[in-house]
Write a protein that binds this DNA or RNA. Structure first.
Lengths: 332, 332
DNA sequence: CTGAAAGCGCTAACAC
DNA sequence: GTGTTAGCGCTTTCAG
């Protein structure tokens, strides 16, 4: 690898220049592949010295001068969540293949913490930001725009629409899913979700279910609310109910509760919804569910952001929906 | 928030100095809380200007001068893995609470890619590195040591032992788990694992099972090998077998295979092992399993690394085991 | 108590 | 083709 046996201090461009008998400028030109007017001889000499010394330019210094850090800030609402993991996987495939690196922060879904972290990213001179916003109002993120920093939203929209958001095709896939379900089999319909208000995705999914079930009414159970578990069991006990779960964690919970209540799926209750794990087929009879293309969403976020950074263009506000896959099994 | 309506360029320390009628030096002193010899008046004035201008120092520039980037490099073998997610969660709790930020890279378990990423982190002037190594030989990481960069290993040891590694108490917890199992119930014992060779953790777990079952022999099935699925079904069919799964993904796979083969757990086969998801209770009868304290491992890694960085001391090589929890259910 | 000046490692006019 | 010079935004002697 051309590495010396022991090396303490970083070698600098100056040392390379000295050893090669040229100026820093020339070395810098070499580094930045500006060969257009450079004698093959010097070029070769510099190359040799760089290898001998195992010289690697300091990104810090380059960034300070060139205003490009090759750092991307990523703020996620919960890094331990499977959805987030897959999103990050997709991003890292795009960024790391190129020379970009991600600084990843976990906002815990808390708006104040999120603001703090966003500011830190700006302090760090990141070239762009990918954000899964904890707030639903665009105003919270206006200051990023003011800084002229490219920003792209993951999964969740903010209002009024101001940035490009990339996520699942919630409405379309839910509509397709319900086309496959024989609604007459059910006497009541329930959406189970984490609290709707702060997250556009949850609202959109709820609305899509409402639309799909119309004119039948749709109940909403928000996990964490008073007696929500009991509410599920009550509904399941009263009439044949279809439970639509807004994400994978919720689905796991619902299945657990129904199992404890000794309800048979799909004979006594129906269960469907979003499955972040792609593994509900392990559970019970196999759950008919929506599998999100999470990695591809992550990759798309990264690609779009890079393009915006490199072209210096502002991303067009709006929602880019990546199509989901419906996994038909036997839970409904 | 003290933010102006529109601001394009970052404000610099020079502008603050000008507005406050002092020199950059004094502002810098203020920023670094060197108040010892500074008149309350100037202090107040600087404070006011900083707030009015919403000035925030550039980390880039600070780092270039002070040799402290407040950046930590984290290289993980697979970022979409649940174990990794929880590790990162634990780390982020420690780092982000303080003013540290993580650059996270996914090595895909590939040694070459990993080397490349580690070098990039060095280029970026990170203050320390947390690594879940893809290779098992310490030699691969010697160059980090040569750079005087604090390094700490997550979950996996390298040989010869050269750095502090923090992970699960594999041997101890496996020994405790087997104390709870009535070995006489089984006629054969099998460890199912991803390929053993490159990862110390997998080897250690296998050895611990061998020790616990002695003098009975222990079969080893490496997933991905020729006909490994069939091997599982064959063993299960021949005699009453206990399957020990080396991690959560493997356990999911084993359960899936056994289910397809119509084997009843625990009547016909026993299943136990490590469960990264803390959710195998959703599956079948509830799986007796080992739940790793993954978040705490992540936090411990972060804490130890920070301490090493701040004290300028080298971490003592060795293995720090964080105790796991055994979840006794009914699968064995 | 405060400031001038040098410099961290690099890039980019502008000369020659 | 290549070098000189002047910074990027900050910290830190060293003087006063």
């Amino acid at each position: 690898m051309g590495k010396g046996l022991v090396m303490n201090k970083r070698v600098t461009i100056q040392e390379v220049a000295d050893q090669a008998g040229v100026s820093k400028t020339t070395v810098s030109r070499y580094l930045n592949k500006k060969y257009h007017k450079m004698s093959p001889a010097t070029k070769k000499r510099i190359k040799a010295v760089i290898e001998a010394l195992d010289y690697r330019p300091s990104r810090q210094a380059q960034a300070l001068k060139s205003k490009r850090s090759y750092l991307i800030g990523v703020v996620i609402a919960d890094i331990s969540n499977m959805y987030a993991s897959l999103l990050l996987k997709g991003m890292s495939q795009v960024f790391n293949q190129a020379k970009w690196q991600m600084i990843i922060l976990d906002s815990l879904g808390e708006v104040d913490l999120e603001s703090q972290y966003l500011e830190r990213l700006i302090d760090q001179n990141v070239d762009g930001i990918i954000l899964q916003p904890a707030a639903i109002t665009s105003e919270n993120y206006q200051f990023i725009e003011d800084m002229q920093l490219p920003l792209i939203l993951a999964d969740r929209k903010t209002y009024p629409s101001q940035w490009l958001t990339i996520g699942t095709d919630n409405e379309a896939v839910i509509s397709r899913l319900f086309d496959q379900i024989h609604l007459a089999d059910y006497q009541s319909f329930v959406v189970v979700s984490e609290v709707l208000a702060p997250v556009s995705t949850r609202q959109d999914r709820y609305q899509a279910v409402v639309t799909a079930c119309a004119p039948a009414p749709v109940h909403l159970i928000e996990v964490g609310q008073n007696n929500w578990q009991k509410a599920i069991l009550d509904l399941a006990g009263q009439q044949k109910t279809l439970f639509f779960c807004n994400n994978g964690r919720v689905m796991i919970e619902v299945l657990r509760i129904l199992k404890q209540g000794n309800f048979q799926v799909p004979q006594e209750v129906g269960v469907t919804g979003f499955d972040d794990w792609h593994m509900t087929d392990m559970i019970g009879p196999g759950i008919t569910s929506i599998e999100q293309p999470t990695e591809r969403i992550g990759a798309a976020l990264a690609e779009n952001l890079l393009q915006a950074i490199e072209s210096q263009q502002i991303l067009k506000a709006g929602y880019q929906a990546i199509p989901s896959h419906i996994s038909l099994r036997s839970s409904v």
